[in-house]
Computed example of a mutant assay.
Amino acid sequence: MRQIVMDTETTGLDPADGHRVVELAGVEIVNRLLTGNHLHLYLNPDRDSDPEALAVHGLTTEFLADHPRFPEIADRFLEYIKDAEIIIHNAPFDTKFLNAELAKAGRPRMDEVCAKITDSLTYARELHPGKRNSLDALCERYGISNAHRTLHGALLDSELLADVWLAMTRGQNGLMMDFSDEDASSGGSHVQLERIDASSLPVIFAQAEELAAHESYLEDLDKSSGGGCVWRQL
């Protein structure tokens, strides 16, 4: 499976107001391994960034003036994302900008070229409901260092998100079913599971000292909570 973890930086919040993409980056993952096949481009937007956006990415009009405009790199971008799953944090924001740029360049939309678009923010919210799920918060939750992230940059953020995505989805490997070559060649998908006789499973009871240690632990919990433990009240 080929996946591209992407991020963009822009001149403002909405392409409908004439805002443009100023930085674009992608990090390739194949079979859950980073390949080193990165895409990283600065783009000349032919306009200034809003002060708020400039404070986020720090890419000045003067710096961007010597870089290509989006139509010059549109085909390279589409070739890079072709047939891949695209993973973006808050995907509607980035895809709105990228599709606007592609339309201006007379090219097809992203979803007409790539295999699918996955919003890692939506996935994180489903996985961690009620918690902060910004990229910084997820880096902290999964022990991924982002100490070098002083300004937002598309490549750095893509690399961090790739690490976060692999950490968030690492349990998926155990859910994959591996069919035999014979099944695959015959077109069959039937998996026969061996029946387990539960009566043959051993039953291990706790020893007296283990029960006493557990009771002592519960007592300590009850005391530290001021006698508010639910199981004591019941």
Rank of each mutant, 00 (worst) to 15 (best):
residue 198 A to L: 15
residue 212 A to I: 11
residue 167 A to P: 11
residue 188 G to Q: 08
residue 198 A to K: 12
residue 20 R to L: 02
residue 174 G to A: 14
residue 178 D to N: 11
residue 42 Y to V: 02
residue 68 P to M: 09
residue 130 G to W: 09
residue 69 R to F: 00
residue 171 G to V: 05
residue 186 S to N: 14
residue 21 V to M: 14
residue 20 R to D: 02
residue 206 A to W: 09
residue 64 L to C: 06
residue 190 H to T: 15
residue 4 I to F: 00
residue 41 L to V: 14
residue 27 V to I: 11
residue 152 H to S: 07
residue 55 A to L: 10
residue 145 S to W: 01
residue 179 F to G: 00
residue 124 A to E: 06
residue 233 Q to E: 11
residue 187 G to Y: 01
residue 66 D to N: 13
residue 131 K to L: 14
residue 64 L to R: 04
residue 89 H to W: 12
residue 43 L to D: 00
residue 24 L to D: 00
residue 34 L to R: 15
residue 203 V to N: 08
residue 63 F to A: 06
residue 215 E to T: 13
residue 171 G to P: 01
residue 66 D to V: 09
residue 26 G to Q: 03
residue 192 Q to K: 13
residue 99 N to K: 04
residue 156 L to T: 08
residue 26 G to H: 03
residue 176 M to T: 14
residue 135 L to I: 15
residue 121 L to G: 01
residue 206 A to G: 06
residue 188 G to T: 08
residue 78 L to V: 02
residue 88 I to Q: 02
residue 68 P to A: 07
residue 215 E to R: 14
residue 170 R to Y: 06
residue 186 S to F: 05
residue 118 T to C: 04
residue 178 D to R: 14
residue 66 D to W: 02
residue 217 Y to G: 01
residue 134 S to I: 02
residue 77 F to N: 01
residue 134 S to D: 04
residue 210 E to A: 12
residue 207 Q to Y: 03
residue 227 G to N: 03
residue 136 D to I: 09
residue 218 L to A: 02
residue 45 P to V: 01
